[in-house]
């Protein structure tokens, strides 16, 4: 019998000075029964992509407050693709102006969640949009 668990990487690319939001989201995922790998502050896109590969996560949730999302998100997506991990669902949270959302989606983010996002909604969206992966 298979006991698959959904695994999520919660990562903070860039130079943000705090991670309260990321921790709140990590906890919401845990409380929904998901396994959350949390990697802490100041991660480079390469570190995030490598962690996503090693941890074989279904989802990479990137929390960005610094305003550098238009650079960081495509960078993470590119690194993941280069490693063959293009089946990871990419989510972005943090302080993201509405006008940047289309560009992030264009870059590969499946969902973008601003400061007012509801935690249940984030978890629901995540579970509804998982991509099936083969061995």
């Amino acid at each position: 019998m298979s006991h698959a668990k959904v695994r999520v990487l919660v990562a903070k690319p860039g130079l943000d000075s705090h991670d309260r939001g990321a921790k709140v989201v990590a906890r919401a995922y845990r409380d929904a029964g998901l396994e959350v790998v949390y990697t802490g502050l100041h991660q480079t896109p390469e570190e995030i992509a490598e962690a996503a590969v090693q941890e074989d996560v279904d989802v990479a949730a990137l929390s960005i407050l610094s305003g550098a999302h238009l650079t960081l998100v495509p960078e993470v997506v590119n690194r993941l693709r280069a490693k063959g991990a293009d089946d990871v669902l990419i989510l972005v949270g943090g302080i993201i102006p509405d006008e940047d959302v289309p560009a992030l989606k264009e870059a590969g983010a499946a969902g973008v969640f601003g400061p007012g996002a509801n935690l249940d909604e984030i978890v629901e969206f995540t579970l509804a949009n998982l991509r099936r992966r083969g061995a």
Binding site: R30, D31, G33, L34, Q43, E47, E50, A51, Q54
Partner: peptide, 26 residues
């Protein structure tokens, strides 16, 4: 209670994080 988990050991394992000679699994 939930069957979920927060795996935080990588926070302190930064030096091997992008080294191809290291593989970390939580």
């Amino acid at each position: 209670f939930s069957g979920g988990a927060i795996l935080g050991d990588r926070i302190r394992m930064r030096r091997g994080a992008s080294d191809p000679g290291v593989f970390i699994r939580s």
